[in-house]
């Protein structure tokens, strides 16, 4: 039986599991600061575990993506082995980062070892574009019609107020050129056609067996009973157009502007 309950795990296991895997008397509070599993074999096992469990979001080489960059020499939520262990084990609340509740402790340590190795590369890619010029590109191309920055703009796309802190430069560039490369589930689109032939489309907010809800390009919340619909389309494409038509400078400046957005105000 494999349906994991976070609450159950934390209540019952957080203390016990760690006690059991180290000498008696230890608890989560005295989890070692230094990773005990750092041999070459551990690193290789950690690499494979990372590719299977982490690379999908963080990039196969830690270059980032939907998840944070891990190869820049600096982490956002803690740098010590122990801190990274706890993040991998428990996940991060209010983010897309899940925990690895059923992974053996040794495997978590091996992932920590590999993540630290990635981090030592210090390969942080810094945006080279001019952020001020990028702001003009942002305005000229109507990005604010769909995106919101610090309370201003549209609702259709993701809020970008701190996108620079969340996404790697590489991922920002890719999102502009290939918007369908990594479409977050929260921003999936849907198009519906009613039995009277009326079409509506927007962000897919909620759906069950009997109803469907979306937010259209005007920010309006629309509710449909499925008995009123003759067709529901869930296109795999993002509503966002690609910006391959931008010049290289425009693109890099826009990436520079987005990368400079670090904190919600």
């Amino acid at each position: 039986m494999l349906r994991i309950s976070l609450i159950a795990y934390c209540l019952m296991s957080c203390a016990l599991v760690l006690q059991a895997q180290r000498p008696a008397g230890q608890s989560r509070s005295n989890l070692p600061d230094t990773n005990p599993y750092t041999s070459a074999a551990d690193l290789e096992a950690g690499r494979k575990l990372y590719i299977g469990k982490c690379g999908h979001c963080h990039g196969q080489n830690g270059e980032g993506g939907r998840g944070a960059t891990l190869n820049t020499g600096q982490f956002r939520h803690g740098n010590s082995d122990r801190e990274i262990f706890l993040i991998i084990r428990n996940g991060l609340p209010n983010t897309e980062m899940p925990g690895t509740f059923n992974a053996p402790e040794v495997d978590v340590w091996r992932i920590v070892a590999y993540v630290q190795q990635l981090n030592r590369q210090g390969l942080k890619e810094t945006a080279t574009g001019d952020a001020a010029a990028g702001l003009l590109v942002y305005g000229k191309n109507g990005c604010a019609a769909c995106h919101r920055i610090n309370g201003k703009g549209g609702f259709l796309g993701p809020d970008l107020s701190d996108i620079g802190a969340k996404r790697a430069v590489r991922h920002l560039r890719e999102s502009l050129l290939e918007p369908n490369a990594d479409l977050p589930l929260d921003y999936r689109t849907v198009e519906v056609i009613t039995i009277t032939g009326k079409r509506s489309s927007g962000i897919h907010l909620n759906e069950d067996e009997y109803s469907l809800h979306l937010r259209d390009s005007q920010g309006s919340l629309l509710s449909f009973l499925k008995t009123e619909l003759k067709e529901i389309k869930l296109p795999r494409e993002s509503l966002m157009p690609d910006y391959k038509s931008l010049s290289k400078d425009e693109l890099e400046n826009l990436v520079g502007y987005l990368s400079s957005l670090r904190q919600k105000q």
């Binding site: 494999l2 296991s13 006690q19 059991a20 299977g52 469990k53 899940p98 992974a103």
Partner: peptide, 23 residues
């Protein structure tokens, strides 16, 4: 997923892998 076969320890999971990845 398959991971190293675990050693039995009271209070610890004994999975040897996982079956998640739904995201």
């Amino acid at each position: 997923f398959k991971s190293d076969a675990p050693e039995f320890r009271p209070g610890d999971a004994f999975f040897g892998g996982g079956g998640g990845g739904g995201a």
